[in-house]
């Protein structure tokens, strides 16, 4: 027996556990509704044209990421994986003729891959349906915006994975993970903006842009239109690409640590 069948077996089990009917359907409905509504509202507001307008539409319609990707990440990675370790399900999975790395890949494919696939599918379908001309005119802007918006979400997924593996408790990992996400993406955001505003220095924005490259991209496209920060920091296009690269390197580092820990350090 090859590795394919046990891998599929673990993947199917994870899918069954992660997406009981009708949780996935409710999330998809809410995500689709938010994508269409927010995209439509962004088009109506239409304060500018060209690449900035495309960025505005795409980033507005990616807000449902929170519904379709962040909620499943919290539920499936922080709570799900933590509970699996806590209840000994992971130990059972280790008895499969499958390397630990493949088991984690199957789990992550279900917990992260499926929501990402659905989100991208719905989002791109919605944008092509509502704004085909705008999207086709600036495909590079669309790609960059998606990449920038997904980077912090993937970083959050990686950090939640580390938390779940370290804490080995579902509820504890969920609560801690939720707190971490709020601190990283809400409280830090407010602090960074306040610091930039009060000190007039761009260093806080630059550091925070490594974690959230969408900040750099937003400043690049909309800096001259939105808010005060454009006076403090307007990155160049090559700088934006560097921040994006740094963001994804950070994501890769966190996931690598997670994989190494799952394969070698996880004691159950």
């Amino acid at each position: 027996m090859g590795k394919g069948r046990p891998f599929l077996e673990v993947f199917t089990c994870a899918l069954n556990e992660d997406y009981r009917f009708p949780i996935l359907e409710i999330l998809v409905f809410l995500c689709a509704l938010c994508t269409f509504v927010l995209g439509g509202l962004a088009a109506v507001s239409g304060f500018t044209t060209g690449e900035a307008f495309t960025h505005n539409i795409v980033s507005s319609s990616t807000l449902p990421l929170i519904i379709l990707v962040v909620i499943p990440i919290l539920k499936n990675i922080a709570y799900g994986l933590g509970s699996d370790i806590e209840k000994g399900i992971t130990q059972t999975l280790f008895s499969y003729p499958l390397k630990r790395g493949y088991i984690l890949t199957a789990k992550l494919l279900s917990a992260l891959g499926i929501p990402l696939l659905l989100f991208l599918g719905i989002s791109i379908f919605g944008l092509f349906l509502l704004f085909p001309d705008i999207i086709l005119a600036n495909p590079d802007t669309v790609f960059l915006t998606y990449a920038a918006q997904l980077s912090p979400v993937l970083l959050a997924a990686g950090l939640l994975l580390l938390l779940a593996l370290r804490l080995k408790r579902g509820v504890l990992a969920l609560i801690t993970g939720l707190g971490l996400c709020i601190v990283l993406f809400v409280i830090f955001d407010a602090i960074v903006n306040s610091l930039a505003y009060t000190t007039g220095s761009d260093w806080s924005l630059k550091i925070y842009a490594v974690i959230t490259p969408n900040l750099a991209l937003q400043e690049y496209y909309l800096g001259t239109i939105l808010g005060f920060t454009h006076k403090i920091w307007v990155p160049s296009f090559s700088e934006v690409l560097l921040y994006l690269l740094a963001g994804y390197l950070l994501v890769a580092l966190v996931f690598t640590i997670g994989y190494v820990y799952f394969k070698r350090g996880l004691r159950i």
């Binding site: 997406y19 009917f21 009708p22 996935l24 359907e25 409710i26 998809v28 409905f29 689709a32 509704l33 269409f36 509504v37 439509g40 659905l118 719905i122 379908f125 349906l129």
Partner: peptide, 17 residues
Amino acid sequence: GRTGTVILMVGLALVLV
């Protein structure tokens, strides 16, 4: 079946919007 229910939900969201 699950693919169908997901597609159905996207369709319903479109109708609603």
